[in-house]
Computed example of a mutant assay.
Amino acid sequence: MSYPQQSGGMSTHPEFAEMRDRLERTASSGQAIAVEGLVLLAGVYAAVSPWVVHFTNDSFITVNNLIVGIGIALIGLGLALAPERMFRVAWVLVPMGVWLLISPWVVTAGHSARAGIIWNNCWLGAITALLGLAAMGLTIGRTRRPTR
């Protein structure tokens, strides 16, 4: 018994085209553009925050913030340049934000972190996680248009 072969794979599936259209509408909305920009700014600030808050003499947390900040900024840049592809990976911002939130205690386990480091990373981590949730909500929260 042979089954009919479909050419084109998933790209010809009607729901795939609808999902692509929905992502394109989401990516071009004012809310999405604001989230993209804020994610990029949060990442850049996370990367330079050791020099802004003056905790560069603690090398472990400095390297941590630099690497995580560059990662967040790259996701923000990707959201701005290719939003139809990058909104699917926006969920990564949530664990990165949680990591920034807890990293002063995890990374500086041998000695206590200064209050400036803790305040900086807690605020930055919470904001990053919320921006990740907002980016996820932009794609998940959109209702489907009824088919005619």
Rank of each mutant, 00 (worst) to 15 (best):
S28V: 06
S28F: 02
S29G: 06
S29F: 12
G30V: 03
Q31R: 11
Q31H: 13
Q31K: 14
Q31C: 09
A32Y: 12
A32E: 10
I33N: 10
A34R: 11
A34D: 12
A34F: 12
V35D: 01
V35H: 01
E36I: 00
G37Q: 06
G37P: 01
G37E: 04
G37T: 01
L38K: 05
L38W: 04
V39P: 04
V39A: 02
V39L: 09
L40Y: 04
L40D: 05
L40E: 02
A42G: 06
A42T: 06
G43W: 01
G43D: 08
G43Q: 09
V44T: 04
V44M: 00
Y45W: 14
A46T: 07
A46Y: 02
A46F: 07
A46G: 10
A47W: 04
A47D: 14
A47P: 00
A47Y: 00
V48M: 07
V48H: 08
S49V: 10
S49Y: 03
S49Q: 07
P50E: 03
P50H: 07
P50W: 06
W51S: 04
W51A: 13
V52T: 00
V52A: 10
V52E: 02
V53H: 15
H54F: 15
H54I: 13
H54C: 14
H54V: 09
F55I: 01
F55N: 01
F55P: 01
F55A: 04
T56H: 11
T56A: 11
T56R: 14
T56G: 05
T56C: 07
N57M: 13
N57L: 11
N57C: 13
D58H: 10
D58I: 06
D58A: 09
D58Y: 11
S59F: 09
S59I: 05
F60W: 12
F60D: 14
F60G: 15
I61H: 00
I61R: 05
I61E: 00
I61L: 04
I61T: 00
I61A: 00
T62F: 02
T62I: 01
V63W: 13
V63Q: 12
N64A: 02
N65G: 00
N65Q: 03
L66I: 05
L66G: 13
L66W: 10
I67A: 04
I67C: 07
I67T: 12
V68G: 08
V68D: 05
G69Y: 08
I70T: 09
I70Y: 14
G71T: 08
I72N: 03
I72F: 05
A73R: 01
A73E: 00
L74I: 04
L74P: 01
L74A: 11
I75N: 07
I75S: 03
G76N: 12
L77A: 15
L77Y: 06
L77H: 09
L77S: 14
G78Q: 11
G78L: 07
G78Y: 07
L79V: 05
L79K: 10
L79P: 08
L79M: 15
A80T: 09
A80Y: 01
L81E: 12
L81M: 15
A82W: 13
A82L: 11
A82C: 09
P83M: 00
P83Q: 03
P83C: 05
P83N: 04
E84H: 10
E84F: 08
R85E: 14
R85L: 13
R85V: 11
R85Q: 10
M86K: 08
M86S: 10
M86H: 09
M86N: 11
M86Q: 14
